[in-house]
Amino acid sequence: MSQTVVLGVIGSDAHVVGITILEQAFSAAGFDVVNLGVQTSQEEFAEEAVDHDAEAVLVSSLYGHAEQDCQGFHEVLAESDVDAVTYIGGNLAVGQDEFDQTRRTFRELGFDRVFDSETDPEDAIEALREDLQITPTESERATISS
């Protein structure tokens, strides 16, 4: 396989731990990971997705301003002809009592899946496998279940 995933923290958010863990998790699951790190602009996501012919763009945000940071994001991706699955996850709203509402907001912005900050990396990997119709190889399955 070796599908490419671009990931990064959008906006001026500098939370690096989550993205580091995600990078490790997706690499261990057999993806090629391009980690753009923190404080990544919409344009950088688009550029790198094109350069690496990415199958998926994973956006992280933990400081509560994701909605603002993602306005027009999918238009920017479309302009660069990025045809990738897009996920977003993290603390997506300042007060997130109603995650259903938050999910709706980000689905409307164009994201294919929306995750809260409690999501296990494995769940995101599982979802991506499903969306990209990938079956884990024998050896990978062993790694994951070990």
Binding site: V17, Q24, G37, Q39
Partner: peptide, 14 residues
Amino acid sequence: VPFAPSDSARGAVL
């Protein structure tokens, strides 16, 4: 330095 957001450090050590 682990978990370094800076481009000046690899942030590759875990």
